[in-house]
Design a protein around this nucleic acid. Structure first.
Length: 487
RNA sequence: GCCCCCAUCGUCUAGUGGCCUAGGACAUCAGCCUUUCAAGCUGAAGAUCAGGGGUCCGAAUCCCCUUGGGGGCACCA
């Protein structure tokens, strides 16, 4: 009891570099991080690279980058299991010495065939324990024949294991539903089960927060801790994040890799806020929480048990909220790389920061992601607009009256002494009255002429930013289009 | 097939026996604002709390069964 509360809080995020981290992995990292920070604990990063065959080049860097991007800073590590092989081998040897493990010489072929046969007979696929009670002589013979064994755990044949999960409560597994799982592979690398508990023990991990998919391997881990006479950490299994088809997140679910979200222009703070709400909630109404608030309020008691489906639309909304909350300077700073990357090549670089700033003040509240900023703003940068001439006469004004209106507007604007939104509005409203046109119709035609589209930021502010010369040029161009349309 | 877990609006969720004729958010629809879009505001629609049995004066909340969904069952993690 006392030792429990005294034990220092040490959490770890332990991804395997067999692919890029997806939303589920990152949510696990986030909860570990939040819990560690909440309790002034230590957050450790450990790379579980024990699968040589499935290792993906560059995955480690992407994992580190993703954590850095989201601001999930770690206090220790990254540790690499591939550099700690001797510890696992020693532990495996100790288990053999103490009769908790044994060498198994069965070939992968035999095991595969057996599994298939069992499945065919609709029986649970389990190792038949053929090597469990090999005599020393039999073992020596097999070894002499050149077979490299794996080390298997001697799972108790009878009884059951119960553990207390911080989220799911009491969970019990009968031993006869388990089999003698592999601890050490024939290539000398440990399996997840061995490496994981050895590291958690020696790294003095106090709480293991991991996805629910691990729940059914927990009894094996508990059994291992018991066999080694080590104190097990507290387990907390987190509800899964599922794809829209309600299945476990995988490659076929499209953009689930976290770096995709960075590329799509989501803000780290929005991402963290959103992910925190997948499986955790503060109360019945609070949804927007800063990093500090999340740390302050995070608790396992408020983590749910039901799997969540990731809902991108809500993320977009939340990202929009965070985008709008940014100061203009910060917004410009964040959006600049996206403009740089996605604006057409014809646009001169480097972009003028003063001009970009004026433009983006009109774009900020219209963007849900940074990646759509270039799309929303490109007409501010383009020299020549390319658009369908029919947009000009799409409203109630036909081509003829459109021409008339644009010509009149050009004339008035040419004489404008000053060029700001208020002045422009004055001039054009007066013109609408003069032409006996509803203001909205006149503005509509001009909007298309100026921006090349029917939906855009407010017309007068847009014109003010673009400047007199460019605006008049665009009106001229619209006239040509309309005239061509008439013929 | 076996084992484990879960089950409230389309989605994320609040709810731990009476405050629930079930609350909030996203999305949807309508209206307002308005030069378009966006934002904002207001409102609507949307869950017989998976179904069926109990327990109780009283059940979304406790128990059981059924159904459904998910996860696990590798010399992968």
């Amino acid at each position: 009891m006392q030792s429990e509360s005294q034990r220092s809080v040490r959490l770890r995020f332990a991804p395997s570099p067999t692919g890029y981290p997806h939303l589920g992995n990152i949510r696990t990292a986030l909860f570990n991080w939040l819990f560690a920070r909440r309790h002034d604990g230590i957050f450790i990063l450990r790379i579980e690279d024990t699968d040589v065959a499935r290792k993906v080049e560059g995955a480690v860097d992407i994992i580190l980058d993703s954590l850095r991007w989201l601001g999930l800073d770690w206090d220790e590590g990254p540790y690499f299991q591939s550099q700690r092989l001797s510890i696992y081998r020693e532990t495996a040897q100790r288990l053999i010495d103490e009769d908790h493990a044994y060498s198994c010489y069965c070939s992968p072929e035999r095991l595969g065939a057996m599994r298939q046969e069992q499945m065919k007979r609709k029986q649970p696929p389990k190792y038949d324990r053929r090597c469990r009670d090999l005599t020393q002589q039999q073992g020596t013979e097999l070894k002499a024949a050149g077979v490299t064994p794996v080390i298997r755990f001697k799972t108790p044949l009878e009884g059951e294991t119960t553990f207390h999960d911080l989220i799911y409560g009491r969970v019990t597994f009968r031993h006869d539903t388990l089999d003698d799982f592999v601890l050490l592979k024939s290539d000398g690398y440990p399996t997840y089960h061995l490496a994981n508990i050895v590291d958690d023990h020696f790294m003095d991990i106090s709480h293991v927060l991991r996805a629910e998919e691990w729940l059914s391997s927990t009894p094996r881990h508990v059994l291992l801790y018991q066999a080694l006479d080590w104190q097990a950490p507290q387990f907390a299994h987190l509800p899964m994040i599922l794809g829209p088809d309600r299945a476990k997140l995988s490659k076929r679910h499209g953009a689930t890799n976290i770096n995709e979200y960075q590329k799509e222009g989501y803000l780290p703070d929005a991402m963290v806020n959103f992910l925190a709400l997948l499986g955790w909630s503060l109360d019945d109404r609070t949804e927007l929480l800063s990093r500090e608030e999340l740390i302050k309020h995070f608790s396992l008691e408020r983590v749910g048990k039901t799997a969540a489906i990731f809902n991108k639309e809500k993320l977009e909304w939340m990202n929009g909220v965070y985008l709008r909350r940014l100061g203009l300077t910060e917004f410009v700073h964040r959006a600049m790389p996206f403009l740089d990357k996605s604006l057409p090549e014809s646009v001169r670089r480097p972009l003028d920061e003063g001009y970009v700033s004026q433009v983006l003040s009109l774009i900020q509240e219209r963007a849900k992601t940074l990646a759509e900023v270039p799309q929303l703003a490109d007409f501010f940068f383009l020299d020549e607009l390319l658009y369908d001439a029919r947009l000009l006469s799409k409203g109630k004004l036909d081509a003829k009256s459109g021409i008339k209106a644009i010509m009149a507007a050009s004339q008035k604007l040419e004489q404008a002494a000053t060029w700001d939104a208020i002045t422009l509005e004055g001039i054009l409203r007066a013109l609408a009255t003069e032409l006996k046109l509803p203001a909205g119709e006149l503005f509509g035609v001009l909007r298309v002429a100026i921006t090349g589209r029917t939906a855009a930021p407010p017309l007068f502010q847009t014109m003010a930013v673009l400047g007199k010369e460019k605006c008049l040029k665009r009106l001229e161009m619209a006239l040509q289009l309309l005239e061509a349309d008439l013929n």
